[in-house]
Design a protein around this nucleic acid. Structure first.
Lengths: 212, 212
DNA sequence: CCTCCTAGATAGTGATACTGTCCACGTAGA
DNA sequence: TCTACGTGGACAGTATCACTATCTAGGAGG
């Protein structure tokens, strides 16, 4: 199919498709002649994936690039997922490294959770530390691990559920795609659901409360 | 304290403080003379809050404005929370209204969850619908509610936990602040923890898997 | 043959969140 | 009293991001 058809089928403007091609987010099509390139279903699918990650997950274009690079990772599917996790993780909120004790607390949380398969240099260790650091600067005490425990338990449940639910028949890249889409979509959905649930549950405690 | 001192104490540049004052995110200080304004602890605190919401929660300045406006809401604490939830909710990903059946599915999910205290016009109903719509356009089938059920249960747990843990001694605005910070901080933390947990749990199933 | 589309290069746009400059003035320390 | 530095206020400038538009030359297809 031609670029205009690809655009029609996906709803993505031609200019944007060209941009994604330039950025290497879409593989080049089959160049029949210097003036005519043929695109196929793989492009349609990839474009759909890119739009979901951008529109639903707010993944920056730079993250998409890292994801594309990650998809070339050799090794086990587990290795592939680990590299993809780094690609999806935002770059740590604060530039600075933060106090080492905050990083230690992040590591302690991960160890407490029993997640001993997490790489020592996972980006998310820094992310967790950076978040604790920023929050700690506001609330004087760096929010002790006990407060985080329920969230650790939830994350563990969530991850088990999602890993278990991956379609075992897919190939390497199919699994990656499913994992990545699941991660960003359900992160968004969960955040929205949580706000809805909070609105509901605040009723019992605060509907009558006119305080102040 | 003077503006330079406020800046030092919070680490926020003077120019940024001026910007926040212009935007109405910070209340004006006590204008002793036309050339000298006195700021106090309330400004320090507010600035800390704003920075957390921006740096950790990625709340846009516009959302912060909505939040400030929301904090003036009359009525019960429950009403206050509801308006704040709308302020924190991102404006729906897609501009268009989407198919009505998607909106119906969003409403059905909320009803199934038993969250009957959620306002009919909550922004998050639209957000949920918009997300379902976008995902549905990619994966042909609009992901049936059963797949979402576990997330509904999690969100419910999360919300109960958070509402129950609010410090009951605080005043109206203190409660709002705690609720809002908790919401954005734990949303971020949970997302990070989930990626970490997924990396760990993928080991058991995929460490040996070289597929493809 | 003529019109439309394409690839590829490059430049421009709009939104967001600051950041920098300028000025006249006033405050505080010497 | 003198003076250097800090201030409020207005406004312009900047950086980044994610596109979007324009232009050129040329080939495809009726």
């Amino acid at each position: 199919m031609r670029i205009s058809e690809l655009s029609e089928q996906t709803g993505v403007p031609v200019a944007t498709i060209k941009y994604y091609l330039r950025e290497g987010l879409l593989p080049e099509g089959d160049k029949r002649t210097p003036r005519l390139t043929e695109y196929d279903e793989r492009h349609v699918r990839r474009l759909g994936l890119l739009r979901i990650l951008r529109d639903v997950g707010d993944v920056p274009v730079d993250g998409l690039k890292r994801l594309v690079a990650a998809s070339e990772t050799r090794g086990s599917v587990h290795d592939l997922f680990a590299v993809a996790a780094d690609a999806l993780a935002p770059t740590p909120p604060a530039a600075g490294p933060g106090r080492p004790e905050t990083r230690a607390m992040a590591d302690a949380i991960i160890q407490q959770a029993g997640w001993d398969r997490v790489r020592e240099d996972s980006v998310d260790r820094d992310n967790l530390a950076a978040t604790l650091e920023l929050v700690g600067a506001f609330e004087t005490h760096p929010r002790d691990p006990a407060e985080i425990a329920p969230y650790v338990a939830m994350a563990d449940q969530l991850a088990r559920h999602e890993i278990a639910n991956l379609d075992g028949r897919k190939d390497r890249l199919g699994l990656l795609e499913e994992m990545v889409v699941g991660q960003v979509v359900f992160a968004t959905v969960l955040t929205t659901l949580r706000r809805l649930a909070e609105e509901h549950h605040s009723h019992e405690r605060f509907a009558e409360d006119q305080r102040d």
